[in-house]
Amino acid sequence: MGLIQFYNVTKLYPPDVVALENITLKIDKGEFVFLVGPSGAGKTTLVRLLFREELPTKGQILVGGRSITRLKGREIALLRRTIGMVFQDFKLIPDWTVFENVAFALRVIEVPPREIKPRVERVLDQVGLLSRAHLFPHQLSGGEQQRVAIARAIVNRPRILVADEPTGNLDPDTSRKIMALLQEINAMGTTVIMATHAWDIVNSMKKRVIALRAGRLVRDDREGVYGYEA
């Protein structure tokens, strides 16, 4: 049984945009998956559906064997605690320190206060930023900011990490470091899904590649390379 399953998922945006069409795929626990395709292919829509930010027009989505299309209020919040999100623009809160930004993710899911500090410190150590915990985002480089965002995404130990263009704003060297970090996280058992345009990264990693084009799944290769020609 896969950790994430899409069955014939279609997403339409009225009046006539077909964002995803009849997508069926399965992602197992511990996998590292690239999601590739040109802009507008449906990568972001797929991520949003998985994250229950939107509902599919048709089809079924299961996470951990449970359908997520019928979740309500609190259950949605609980689902999201099992999925860490990383964005291209980091989405850090500028007037909070690195520590506060990461601790925030624990505070809002009501982790007991005394557990927060050790957990934040451990995860900051893991991403190599423990010494910068007291700094503010604007005092960090882009790569460091993205590492803070990753720390925030994994601090509550989600089963899945979804990264939407995490290297989109970063130079190649920094990107490589971010990829190393994501691989490390994956090696510890977290399933990683990364939507990207960075063909060089995809080609060098030799991981599973799911390619979307115009809302359709055009390729799904075990050890794939970048590309979305059918």
Binding site: G73, R74, A77, K91, I93, F104, A105, V108, I109, R152
Partner: peptide, 17 residues
């Protein structure tokens, strides 16, 4: 609003927010 959307992303419940 940014704070709120991040809260939602990391799984805060609506009532908590």
């Amino acid at each position: 609003r940014q704070e709120i959307s991040i809260m939602k992303y990391v799984g805060a419940t609506d009532s908590f927010i």
